[in-house]
C-alpha cells in the first residue's frame, strides 16, 4: 500500500493535467496547482531551513573545521527571520509590505545581498576568459567549430570586426564579419536551436510518460 499510493497519485494527477489542456472548464487547474505548489514549498522550507540550522549548529557544537563561520550563518539567518517576520524597522509597520522602501529588511537586501550577488555574478567575466582559453586549445574538430563561431560573433559585436574586414568589396559584404555574425545567428544558430528544442520536447514527453506510468520512480524512493 505504501508503495502503491504515491504511484496512483502521480498517475491520476499527471493524467488529469494532460487531459485538462483539452477541456476548457479545467483550464484553471494549472493555476490552482501552481498555488498549491507555492504553499507546499513554504512548508518544505521548514525542513530546508531546519536542516540549515541543524548542520551549522552541529558544526558549532562539535567545533568542526571552520565552525566560526557557522556562527555568522546562523546569526545572519536568525536576524533576517526576526526582522522579516516582525517587520522590524519597517516604516509602514506590520501591515506594510515586507520589502517596502526604507524598511530594514530591504536595506539588508540592498547593502548585503545585492553587492554579494552581483559580485558573484561578475566573477563570470574571469571564468568566461578562462573557459575561452580552454576552448582556444581546441582538442577536436567540434571544439574548433565552436570556437570559430564564437570568435566571429564576438568580433561582430565590436567595432573591431568592422575595421578588420571593411576592405571586402560590397558585393561580397556577407564575408564582412558583422554581416557574417548576423548570418550565423539567423541561419545555423537557428537550425541548431530548433533541433535541440525538438529533441528536448520529445525527451520531456518520453520522461513524463515514464513517470506517469510509474516506470520511472527513483525520485519516490521506490527502487524495485
Amino acid at each position: 500500500m505504501r508503495r502503491q499510493i504515491p504511484l496512483i497519485i502521480t498517475f491520476f494527477i499527471g493524467t488529469l493535467l494532460v487531459v485538462s489542456v483539452f477541456i476548457p472548464p479545467m483550464e484553471s487547474l494549472k493555476e490552482t496547482f501552481t498555488l498549491y505548489f507555492d504553499i507546499i514549498a513554504v512548508f518544505a522550507f521548514f525542513l530546508g531551513g531546519g536542516n540549515l540550522l541543524r548542520v551549522h549548529l552541529t558544526k558549532l557544537s562539535r567545533r568542526k573545521q571552520d565552525w566560526v563561520y557557522s556562527i555568522v550563518t546562523v546569526v545572519g539567518f536568525a536576524v533576517v527571520l526576526v526582522i522579516g517576520l516582525l517587520k522590524l524597522g519597517n516604516p509602514g509597520g506590520i501591515t506594510a509590505s515586507p520589502t517596502a522602501e526604507g524598511s530594514l529588511f530591504q536595506t539588508l537586501f540592498n547593502s548585503i545581498l545585492v553587492p554579494l550577488g552581483s559580485t558573484m555574478y561578475a566573477l563570470l567575466a574571469f571564468f568566461v576568459a578562462s573557459a575561452s582559453y580552454r576552448a582556444f586549445r581546441a582538442k577536436n574538430r567540434e571544439a574548433t567549430i565552436l570556437l570559430i563561431a564564437a570568435f566571429v560573433i564576438l568580433l561582430g559585436r565590436t567595432p573591431f570586426g568592422m575595421m578588420l574586414t571593411s576592405w571586402i568589396p560590397e558585393s561580397f559584404s556577407i564575408l564582412q564579419i558583422p554581416s557574417l555574425a548576423v548570418w550565423i545567428m539567423n541561419s545555423p544558430n537557428l537550425a541548431g536551436q530548433r533541433a535541440i528544442m525538438i529533441g528536448i520536447g520529445l525527451g520531456v514527453v518520453s520522461m513524463s510518460i515514464r513517470i506517469i506510468l510509474g516506470i520511472e520512480r527513483t525520485y519516490l524512493g521506490e527502487e524495485k
Partner: peptide, 9 residues
C-alpha cells in the same frame, strides 16, 4: 538537452 531526459532510462 534530450540526452538529459534520456539519461535515467
Amino acid at each position: 538537452g534530450e540526452e538529459l531526459f534520456a539519461a535515467s532510462a
